[in-house]
């Protein structure tokens, strides 16, 4: 009998040591992947916005509230990207939920030095929130995730730290590769669809020639397209880069008129079938730009 009890205790100890004891929900699949990298099997993680979904506009579904209801931590990009998240948090009724904004230590770009209003389009008053497209910022996000998980589970701090170091090391290694590959387009002008590429462009030395949207969040118009035709021709632009959840109708019109290539990429993990991690995502973006420039 004593042996059986001993075996049971051992079994419980083994199972509980491998059991994911921190429940995390990420607002996007990029954060989801980073949490998996740092937390691995010590963390059960889920996400809200799908990879093929515009993270600005997520419908407030009761099923998302359920995810947050059972969570210990909710990570979000912040800077006003997930305007929908507070409604989900309220709906979850989870008074012990920790809400972590991963933009805290990010070097923010395009913070308006004017009073932003709707005449500027969908300008984010706290700056451009698409910082995850710079791999160096992924390391900042990962560090914030590590610190949060470590404070939640002190006994696993070393485990999380080891995972963080491994992730950073892989990013550093890939960063050299991406930087070398992007040398081909460094200094060249690219047209983007939405004003979400400043962090990526600055990191790899790409010049932003303009945007297909006349203003952030404003649908393309024929008159703006006419202006873009002139810009494409005068600056010899070869590529339009856009997120794959936007309609490519206007970019395709520009392609027909000028011969410019339209590159649709996933800017989130699982945005397309072959992108199953953050590194896959940057790999895909870099390769698509290079192949079409």
């Amino acid at each position: 009998m004593k042996k059986i009890i001993l075996i049971l205790i051992l079994l419980i100890a083994i199972v509980s040591s491998n059991y994911a004891n921190i429940k995390v929900v990420a607002s996007t699949t990029v954060i989801y992947d980073l949490v998996k990298e740092i937390g691995k099997d010590k963390v059960a993680v889920d996400f809200i916005a799908r990879g093929d979904q515009d993270p600005h506009f997520v419908e407030v579904l009761p099923s998302y509230m359920l995810k947050l209801r059972n969570a210990d931590i909710f990570f979000r990009i912040g800077m006003g990207l997930e305007m929908w998240s507070n409604q989900l948090i309220d709906g979850s009724r989870n008074s012990s939920l920790k809400v972590i904004d991963l933009s805290t230590d990010i070097d923010k770009k395009e913070v308006p030095n004017y009073k932003p209003d709707a005449s500027y389009g969908d300008v984010h008053p706290f700056g451009n929130p698409h910082y995850w497209l710079d791999p160096e910022n992924a390391k900042v996000m990962a560090k914030e995730i590590y610190e949060t998980l470590a404070s939640e589970s002190h006994q696993d701090e070393a485990f999380f730290k080891k995972n963080l170091d491994e992730f950073n090391s892989r990013i550093d290694k890939k960063m050299q590769e991406w930087t070398n590959t992007m040398q081909k387009v460094k200094g060249k002008s690219v047209l983007f669809f939405h004003a979400s590429w400043i962090y990526f462009a600055d990191r790899f030395g790409i010049k932003t020639a303009g945007f297909v949207e006349p203003k952030p969040g404003i649908a393309p118009s024929p008159s703006h397209n006419a202006e873009l035709v002139q810009i494409i021709k005068s600056k010899n632009i070869k590529t339009i880069v856009m997120e794959n959840f936007y309609s490519d109708s206007a970019p395709n019109q520009l392609a027909q008129l000028t011969g410019v290539k339209v590159v649709k990429v996933a800017t989130a993990v699982y945005g397309i079938k072959s992108v199953n991690s953050y590194i896959d995502m940057i790999d895909n973006i870099v390769n698509q730009i290079i192949q079409n420039s």
Binding site: F57, V58, E59, V60, P62, M83, W84, Q87
Partner: peptide
């Protein structure tokens, strides 16, 4: 609609 508007609940 002028001013901030909430995300659409289902």
């Amino acid at each position: 609609s002028l001013g901030p508007h909430k995300a659409h609940p289902f």
